[in-house]
Design a protein around this nucleic acid. Structure first.
Length: 986
RNA sequence: UGGCCUGUAGCUCAGGUGGUUAGAGCACACGCCUGAUAAGCGUGAGGUCAGUGGUUCGAGUCCACUCAGGCCAACCA
């Protein structure tokens, strides 16, 4: 520090020159008030018919179609909906601005169980019974219910700033949609891919209906338990004469037994009864195969007083074993072989270590059975699953000797089936023990009565049967092969989606399409009860005419036509000689088939869209949902996927990374965010997050986004204020000072990142690139440096005018790039610069950055300038701390640059201006001892000094020249010139 | 239990094919400015890269396991 005299300006009374400065002036408020402003902008867009204008503007451009995965028309939006729709909106808006015709048509999924429930609930409240209401009346109420929610959700989506054809959305329940969905299914029937198989479902005997898992509640129930022998008949000589013992809580399922499951992870042994009471079921000398861990408990239950283990039995032996059904020979039935199958569901906690497997009566039983299908067929064992229990709970002909016994009565009480089975087993000498067990058991939600798992006919689509005529577009022969090929042809964001979908398609069983429900599109086929032949089908001569009938009727009446009186005559007459054996199928389609067909009834039917879609975007759960069913549906019918790209997003967690739930009270509702902060804040959150993975949201995170928003807004506001003094005259690039050219270079870099980010669906890259640019390059550097020229330079100053020109360029570029992310604020900002009734940033294209803006050499040079600048600011910070200066304008540092490269970079630059000091000296002379240096090794040392001269009353710079102008003795010469020009103007 | 995935500073994110003291923005602390002012600028302090064990001259980066979390495995969408 030298002994420079303190500036004398403090003592001199100063004039307030602020009115002579070009200070920022704007009405653009610092505080956004988004909750009030956003609805007004929506109203404006409505009024100016923005959606229609977007289409008009883009007419003839290449189409880009993001096809909307339909949300379910039930309930208010949650955060997941908001994330989903905002992402879609960012995509459609950015593609539109990239120069595509990017049309977005929102859709809704309207059929299905949840709506049935709601309507039924309303019935119950009114004391009405669903079964007494004609089905089409019930369906009408479901339709009205869905309609109402479509309206509500539509408004909620729009409030998020989502732009699209909300005046003409699609719904799966539109009559035309139902017509297409039904005829799409007919295509599967026609090509022979649809077949009638069977599968166990939860069934309520009392209500005579299938139940969903959600309609079932678990209550305590007392079951009869039995331990039963399955005599070994083949496979292992060492087990001759032994029996595999199973345990079950449902004796009535014994007639349905077709296999025994064991676990390769459990140790088994061959045991012999050494001693048992007279007349005991388990007799001395009998040999049982049991899990070692459970043998003792079994013998105790069987009242066996002594037993011995003869040998261990390996899993390899068990796998080859064949047993006889314990009722073999009863009424001439049960002659089939019972194989042993390895299953993961088998444990050695309870029972015997062997699980009685009745594929018609349990999910796991069914799965094990189906998994072994091919192997069983090779062993000569029929894989057919018997229908041992009918709708009313009676054992059928498929249970010889027990036919007519009842599992559960109309009233929901236990029938006589269990007793009869036990009696028959005992008579056959196959009982080991019996007991009772109190445990939780599924009961119907409605009747509170126990339900059963029973085999029921269902409609399936083959995954692995070669597809014959009627379908086209692919060489692959089976649905699975086609789907796998289609997955290879699809781009996935993130890439893991491909693996996930592929492994699902590889492993999935045949596609079950039928549901025994009311609110949906029917499987509009007929089945010949004598021959099993289905219409339509590969052999049927009138497939097209039949489909045309269905389609024509559904287009006018909707799927209700199928459920109306006389449907059989109406649709079948003239196609068959005798209507009598033809049974109308009343099952409806799984709603996944509905939404899986949207590409057909939306993309193909609307001229303003195209097929296939460019993008499907949904949550990662949709790998087994919409992505999956759309793929199968389209591969079955078209041979290829209905999409080119699949984008998935993760789930939204609470702030601690855990699932949101009502009970934990950690939910964030989009409605609340919108009310408190505005939709743009929510959208900024979406833009900032890595949505490919699970994201978090909460107060802290939203606050951080509000802060980012404020920074963006304030920076735009300052630019607007400054531009109030811009006359709109452009300056040629060649005439720009280096600083301006560097900013344009940076802008070009940001532009490349923005473009790449939008193209690759990486919005957080766009967000951080723009935000960092605004923070670091603009707010903290360029604007800070240029304020002097912008505020103080004379009107005529080229520097001032070029800066204004560049600020205007920066402003328009940034606002456009931000438009897809924060459409409300971007619009508000755009209109400040480009007002007009028909003006909208959303009608603009992203700017093309001129190639001449890119100047890597200049950028490199200025990075050096900034390195030196950092040393200067570091030195000034010390001065500030020591209270020698406050403002940097009080300083006039001496900068010793010890590197030739760095020194050259400063040539011909007004380095004082860049460092925002009043004066500065740059030299290559060695720095004195004690000069300030940065620890990072920059070869620059700074010796701070106070600026000499008087403080300019206008620009606050301290310069010796102040006082030398006779007219304006209290300002610098530059400021004097500015004042002179101002005076001349007046 | 199986399929797919995640775990880097308080928060949101960067960290090609393994290679110098792990980066940014925000938030935080301290200071400056008071002509972007419920603003602006500067400086600074924050990380055993979930953990353990391996491969390697060398691992946030590769491998295995463990822990924590998420989605899927519904006549739910």
């Amino acid at each position: 520090m030298t002994d420079t005299p303190a500036p004398t300006s403090e003592a001199t009374p100063t004039r307030d020159y602020s009115s002579t400065l070009n200070l920022p002036a704007t009405d653009f408020p610092m505080r956004a008030g988004l909750p009030e402003k956003e609805p007004k902008l929506i109203a404006r867009w409505d009024e100016m018919k923005l959606y229609e204008k977007l289409r008009e503007t883009a007419k003839g451009r290449e189409q880009f179609v993001l096809h909307d995965g339909p949300p379910y028309a039930n309930g208010h939006l949650h955060i997941g909906h908001a994330l989903n729709k905002i992402l879609k909106d960012i995509i459609t808006r950015s593609r539109q601005m990239m120069g595509y015709d990017s049309n977005y048509v929102p859709g809704w999924d309207c059929h299905g169980l949840p709506i049935e429930w709601k309507v039924e609930e309303e019935y119950r409240a009114k004391g009405k019974n669903k079964d007494e209401v004609p089905i089409n009346d019930f369906r009408a109420e479901c339709r009205a219910y869905a309609e109402n929610w479509v309206k509500i959700q539509s408004e909620e989506f729009r409030r998020l700033g989502v732009e699209g054809d909300f005046a003409h959305p699609y719904t799966t329940m539109a009559l035309a949609s139902e017509a297409v969905i039904a005829t799409e299914l007919l295509k599967f029937a026609t090509s022979g891919q649809l077949y009638r198989g069977s599968k166990p479902v939860m069934w309520s005997v009392v209500e005579k209906t299938a139940l969903a898992e959600a309609e079932v509640e678990y209550q305590d129930y007392q079951s009869d338990t039995i331990w039963v022998k399955f005599p070994v008949v083949a496979g292992a000589p060492e087990l001759d004469g032994a029996a595999v013992v199973i345990w079950t809580t449902t004796p009535w399922t014994i007639p349905g037994n077709r296999a025994i499951s064991y676990s390769p992870k459990i140790a088994y042994g061959l045991y012999e009864v050494a001693e048992a009471p007279e007349g005991n079921w388990a007799k001395t000398g009998e040999k049982y195969v049991l899990a070692d861990a459970l043998a003792e408990a079994v013998f105790k239950q069987a009242k066996v007083t002594a037993y011995t283990k003869l040998a261990s039995v390996s899993a390899a032996v068990l796998g080859k074993l064949t047993c006889a059904h314990p009722l073999r020979g009863l009424s001439g039935g049960y002659t089939f072989d019972v194989p042993l199958l390895a299953g993961d569901h088998v444990t050695d906690d309870t029972g015997t270590g062997f699980v009685h497997t009745a594929p018609g009566h349990g999910r796991e039983d069914f799965e094990v059975w189906m998994d072994y299908g091919r192997e069983l067929t090779e062993r000569g064992i029929s894989t057919a699953i018997p229908f041992t229990v009918d709708d009313d709970g009676f054992l059928t002909d498929a249970a010889p000797g027990l036919t007519g016994r009842r599992v559960i009565t109309d009233k929901g009480e236990k029938g006589d089936a269990n007793g009869a089975v036990i009696e028959a087993l005992a008579a056959a000498g196959m009982m080991v023990a019996r007991g009772r067990l109190k445990h939780t058991y599924p009961h119907s939600w409605r009747s509170k009565k126990p339900v059963i798992f029973r085999n029921t006919p269902q409609w399936f689509v083959y995954m692995d049967r070669p597809i014959g005529g009627g379908a086209s577009g692919s060489n692959a022969t089976t649905l699975r092969a086609r789907a796998l090929a289609a997955i290879d042809d699809t781009a996935f964001y993130p890439p893991a989606g491909q693996t996930r979908l592929r492994s699902m398609i590889e492993n999935r069983p045949d596609w079950v399409l039928s549901r025994q429900r009311a609110w949906g599109v029917p499987i509009a086929v007929f089945r010949n009860v004598d021959t099993g032949v289905v219409i339509p089908g590969p052999e049927f001569a009138h497939n097209e005419a039949y489909a045309a009938r269905i389609r024509a009727a559904f287009e006018v009446e909707g799927a209700d036509a199928w459920f109306a009186e006389g449907a059989k005559e109406r649709f079948l007459k003239g196609f068959v000689d005798d209507l009598e054996p033809w049974e109308q199928v009343t099952d409806i389609l799984d709603v996944w088939f509905d939404s899986g067909s949207t590409h057909e009834f939306v993309l193909k039917s609307r001229p303003d869209l195209k097929w296939p879609a460019d993008v499907y975007l949904e949550g990662s759960d949709q790998h087994r949902g919409w992505f999956h069913s759309s793929l199968l549906e389209s591969c079955g019918v078209n041979g290829v996927a209905p999409y080119k790209t699949v984008v998935t997003h993760g789930f939204t967690m609470a702030e601690d990374g855990r699932k949101m739930s009502k009970s934990l009270g950690n939910q964030v509702l989009p409605q609340d965010v919108i009310k408190q902060s505005g939709a743009d804040i929510l959208r900024l959150w979406v833009a900032s997050t890595d949505y490919w993975e699970d994201q978090r949201i909460g107060k802290k995170i939203l606050d951080a986004n509000s802060d980012a928003y404020r920074k963006i807004r304030n920076t735009l506001r300052w630019m607007l204020g400054t531009l109030a003094h811009y006359d709109g005259v452009a300056v040629a690039y060649a005439d720009l000072p280096e600083l301006e050219r560097v900013m344009l270079h940076k802008l070009a870099e940001v532009g490349a990142e923005v473009e790449e980010g939008y193209r690759e669906y990486d919005f957080k890259a766009v967000f951080s690139s723009v935000l960092n640019f605004m923070n670091i390059e603009l707010s903290a550097f360029y604007f800070d440096v240029r304020k002097d020229a912008l505020y103080c330079d004379p009107k005529s100053s080229l520097k001032r005018r070029t800066a204004l020109h560049v600020v205007a360029l920066l402003y328009d570029h940034l606002v456009k790039w931000l438009a897809p992310l924060i459409p409300f604020t971007a619009e508000e900002a755009w209109l400040e610069r480009h007002p007009g009734d028909t003006s909208s940033v959303h009608l603009e294209l992203f700017p093309t950055v001129p190639g001449e803006w890119t100047d890597a050499a200049l950028d490199e040079k200025w990075e050096k300038v900034k390195r030196v600048r950092r040393v200067v600011t570091g030195a000034l910070e010390i001065e500030r701390r020591e209270k020698r200066i406050g403002s940097s304008l009080e300083a006039a540092p001496m900068v010793h640059v010890e590197d030739k490269d760095l020194l050259t970079a400063l040539d011909e630059l007004d380095f004082a201006e860049i460092c925002i000091t009043s004066q500065i000296a740059v030299t290559d002379t060695p720095a004195p001892e004690g000069a300030f240096r940065l620890e990072d090794g920059t070869p620059v040392a700074v010796v701070p000094k106070l600026a000499e001269g008087r403080k300019c009353a206008r620009s606050w710079k301290i310069l010796p020249e102040v006082g030398s102008d006779p007219d304006y003795p209290d300002v610098t010469l530059r400021d004097a010139q500015a004042l002179r020009e101002l005076a001349a103007e007046a």
